[in-house]
Design a binder for these strands. Structure first.
Lengths: 154, 154
DNA sequence: CCGAATTACTCAGGGCACTGATTATTTCTT
DNA sequence: AAGAAATAATCAGTGCCCTGAGTAATTCGG
């Protein structure tokens, strides 16, 4: 008795969604490059020369996790790490040719995978889905960083 | 160039949502018991005496992960593992009094946390949110298990 | 200019999540 | 009844995710 219905628990649903995505990614996109790794490659395509911490911020990975992910990508020759001559604490990151090639290849496959993943939803539902996911995530992230309010009411 | 907008990638959004939830859970529910652990306790409140594999199926954890989670809960005295006398491969699982107490306590806190987590959404939006999350997850899980079709069309 | 605070990164430790291989037990087939 | 197939659980290995503590470099305040 007193058991709860997990289907109304957003955390449980989020975990299930992420796991389902993980499996489909593995089957349809890549067994070597993970989704967070792709996010890092993508961030460096958009803004080459970012430092490690900023890349983590862009893709939503904390300092420890981004360090591991970068280290793997660097070990596989997909990106280069060089000390910032202006600030000896930072490493500046840049994709190698191989890294850029990998990003291009996975971009195509990822688009295909997203079609399959979102197949059960209509175009309108997809837009709603994205919007709801983003609103909840943004709000929850805002709870941790009360520094920059999302809406400034004058 | 050719960088992609991650805000239309459900996998990326799912990961962010899950991370946001993880942090809020830690802050508002418990630093000792995790959300998957709570799901296991909850499954055993609903159906005491389940075996390990079935519990994993109920809460969406694979054979390896459920083994680790059960082992932690058992080590902390929240559940008991006994060999099934009918089938020597299985372990039958049952909450201890302490486990049941913990489940009751966390049920209350989890409800409070969900209120905060879902605060940005109206009641109607929450219903839509749950439904979309579930439809996408169910469909993706169905891709892996083509054994039991979700809809039987006569 | 120099000590204090801040910042970027690293490291150790705990937990979740998957795959592939192994072991023990049960069930199926002949 | 005996060998083959299936099943429950374990183990090793990889990767993501967080916290708290530590190190090196820079910036801030007096």
């Amino acid at each position: 008795m007193a058991a709860v219905d997990l289907s109304t628990h957003p955390g449980h649903l989020a975990r299930r969604l992420q796991q389902a995505h993980y499996l489909l990614w593995n089957a349809m996109v890549s067994e070597e490059i993970t989704s967070p790794q792709f996010a890092v490659l993508n961030a460096l395509v958009a803004e080459p020369g970012l430092d490690q911490r900023t890349v983590g911020e862009r893709v939503g990975l904390d300092r420890s996790t981004i360090a591991e992910v970068i280290s793997r990508l660097s070990r596989r020759g997909l990106l280069d790490k060089v000390r910032d001559p202006q600030d000896g604490r930072r490493f500046l990151l840049r994709l190698t040719d191989e890294g850029a090639r990998t990003h291009r290849k996975l971009t195509v496959r990822t688009a295909r995978m997203n079609q399959v993943f979102l197949a059960p939803l209509s175009a309108e539902e997809r837009a709603v889905f994205f919007s709801l996911l983003q609103r909840v995530s943004d709000a929850a992230e805002g709870l941790r960083n009360p520094g920059e309010p999302l809406v400034t009411q004058g």
